[in-house]
Design a protein around this nucleic acid. Structure first.
Length: 561
RNA sequence: GGCCCCAUCGUCUAGCCCGGUCUAGGACGCCAGGUUCUCAUCCUGGAAACCGGGGUUCGAAUCCCCGUGGGGUCACCA
């Protein structure tokens, strides 16, 4: 057992303003993996200092997404899961919600005020904006750093604060250069004046991100800060603050960023864009779903900057049978990606194990245990990467293909329970047949459901694809229809509707007619599904059952022939 | 624009730190062929990259400089 002082502590500190993003998930994963590898502690802290945007619901959602991914935190808010409770406070460093730590921050503010490390600033937002604009007009970078003479004496600051005048508390920055040591990037130097008198406490009494992070990381004993490179420019501020307060400086590791396929930042906006574009293409003038009111809809349609609520957007997409690009962990879950695959894939975005398989191919398929055993900071790359959904899907497909049929059926059913209840209601036997027939052709659960919707329709809901009808049934003097008629008789006489029996029946029937399997199968496919693509014939027929198969053939014969 | 980071196939990357074994390897995708009742799987083959320019060196994808390109960041948001 390492002594407490040598134990490493990592932390993931999301702000609860929405769903967990894949970038955030990767940060959490790396923090988790590093802590595991080092035998340390992985802590979760909720940075809910933006009162307007934070919500308990999204904090909860983030906890659940992390738990689903298998990124288990040792300390932090508690969450009960099927396999136990996550989180807790063995070292007594709670609370883990920053909004509950205001007293702590204020104590440090008091101290800094008294020591002249910080000061109350009564500049109004309007004045700030004007100064910023003036600096811009002079083509200068705006930095708030008044001369000593412009800062009120402490006694005067206190009087004004006591009288209730809105103010912020600012850090009094020193005019010196700051050097940041980063495990990934190396030494990064920032010249004097780069750190300005940034805000520590907002007018509402809540700490800013910078202040909360520095105080909490110190108090919670965080030794390693792993975060995205978008935070690099914040680091000199944090280091300056730590110095002023006499805190330790943790070891920093800034990770490369993750972009979408277009090379832009992955954001919810992409989803709005896809939905908006297809609404426009469909020429819709009003919302097809009641969940979105008139004004919201037209406003959103006309303004590319506007976003719909997550719920609204999803309802709209469902109604239009649209597939939105996934950006949050929840999106991927809903689309039917496996949590272990997501972890494997995002781990590869910016890190790789640097090992080869026996056949010389790169070793890139690994599980959480492997990460917990082998993850290191040294192999984190420096270059930003694009999130390739194609490759993710390929990983997902391969993982599914390697599952046993039993495992696939269980996990698919489990997913269907929440995301495709109609499939979850299927009886065990047909569901099993369906699963064994689609396992090798399933990329995601959502795709599987979409491709196999015809199973759950009623005979009269089947829409026949005109091209398929022409090619398979009507061509060559309706040869297909003729074959279908004969096949119907054979199938009507068949007592057992199970894959093996159906297979022999169809095969020997084809032999009897002196035709190939395809000549029998294709007309049947069209009759039973409306199209030319279905899982293997015997399973398709078995899943549907005798009554349904005959009903569908009859209807097809009646409406096509 | 200031500051900062980065740069190998379309994409993710190995190799770079400790120059030669790199006619630069793998994966996803793509193309062609084969197996097959459709689709898919599976098998075989293929096209595909060291951003540019200077150095250093016998020798550079690997080290240095400049250029170019991309990205991040400049909040009383985190």
């Amino acid at each position: 057992m390492p002594s407490p002082s040598s134990q490493i502590v990592t932390r993931f500190a999301p702000s609860p303003t929405g769903h967990l993003h894949v970038g955030g998930a990767r940060t959490a994963l790396f923090c988790w993996a590093f802590a595991r590898r080092q035998g340390g502690v992985f802590l979760l802290r909720i940075e809910d200092t933006d009162q307007a945007r934070s919500s308990e619901a999204s904090a909860r959602g983030i906890l659940e997404d992390l738990a689903w991914l298998g990124i288990n935190w040792d300390e932090g808010p508690e969450l009960r899961t099927a396999s136990g409770t996550l989180g807790g406070d063995p070292r007594k460093v709670a609370p883990f919600y920053q909004a509950q730590r205001l007293d702590i921050y204020n104590k440090y503010i008091e101290d800094m005020l008294a020591r002249g490390l910080a000061y109350a600033d009564f500049t109004t937002p309007e004045q700030m904006a004007a100064m910023r604009k003036a600096a811009e007009a002079r083509k200068e970078t705006f930095r708030f750093h008044p001369g000593d003479a412009e800062i009120l004496p402490l006694a005067e600051q206190r009087t004004k604060m006591a009288s209730g005048i809105p103010h912020v508390i600012r850090f009094r920055a020193k005019d010196e250069s700051v050097s940041v040591t980063d495990v990934v990037l190396g030494e990064v130097a920032f010249g004097p004046g780069e750190v300005d008198d940034f805000v520590l406490r907002k007018p509402d009494g809540f700490p800013t991100y910078h202040f909360g992070v520095v105080v909490d990381d110190e108090l919670m004993g965080v030794t390693h800060v792993l975060r995205g490179q978008e935070h690099l420019m914040n680091t000199p501020r944090h280091v300056a603050l730590q110095k002023a307060l006499g805190f330790r400086t943790p070891i920093y590791a800034h990770m490369p960023l993750i972009f979408n396929d277009q090379g832009a930042k992955m954001s919810k906006r992409e989803r709005d864009k896809v939905a908006r574009d297809s609404v426009k293409q469909a020429g819709l003038k009003a919302s097809p779903v009641p969940a979105i009111d008139e004004a919201t809809f037209t406003g959103w349609l006309g303004d590319t900057k506007r976003q719909l609520e997550t719920e609204q957007l999803e309802t709209l997409a469902d109604a239009m049978k649209l597939r939105l690009p996934e950006v949050s962990v929840h999106d991927f879950r809903k689309a039917g990606y496996l949590p272990e695959v997501i972890c494997n894939f995002i781990a590869l975005l910016g890190w790789n194990p640097g090992q080869k398989n026996a056949d010389g191919t790169d070793f890139e398929r690994f599980d959480m245990r492997f990460l917990a055993k082998n993850f290191d900071l040294e192999r984190i790359g420096k270059t930003n990467s694009r999130f390739d959904r194609n490759k993710l899907a390929a990983f997902n497909k391969d993982t599914i293909a390697q599952m046993s049929e039993g495992e696939f059926a269980a996990r698919f059913r489990d997913w269907c329970t929440t995301f495709a209840p109609a499939f979850a209601r299927m009886a065990d036997k047909p569901f099993g047949w369906l699963c064994s027939s689609i396992k090798l052709r399933t990329r995601t659960f959502a795709d599987a459901v979409k491709e196999n919707e015809f199973f759950l329709k009623t005979a009269d809901q089947i829409a026949y694809d005109p091209k398929a009808v022409e090619k398979v049934l009507k061509k060559d003097n309706a040869k297909g229809i003729e074959t279908l008629r004969h096949t119907r008789e054979m199938l009507a006489a068949l007592p057992v509707y199970e894959p093996a029996a159906l297979h022999t029946a169809v095969e020997s029937f084809a032999a009897k007619l002196g035709v190939g399997m395809g000549d029998i199968a294709q007309p049947l496919r069209v009759a039973v599904s409306g199209g030319t693509v279905t899982p293997p014939l015997e399973q398709t027929l078995a899943v549907l059952g005798k009554d349904e198969v005959l009903k569908r053939i009859d209807r097809c014969l009646a409406s096509v022939g």
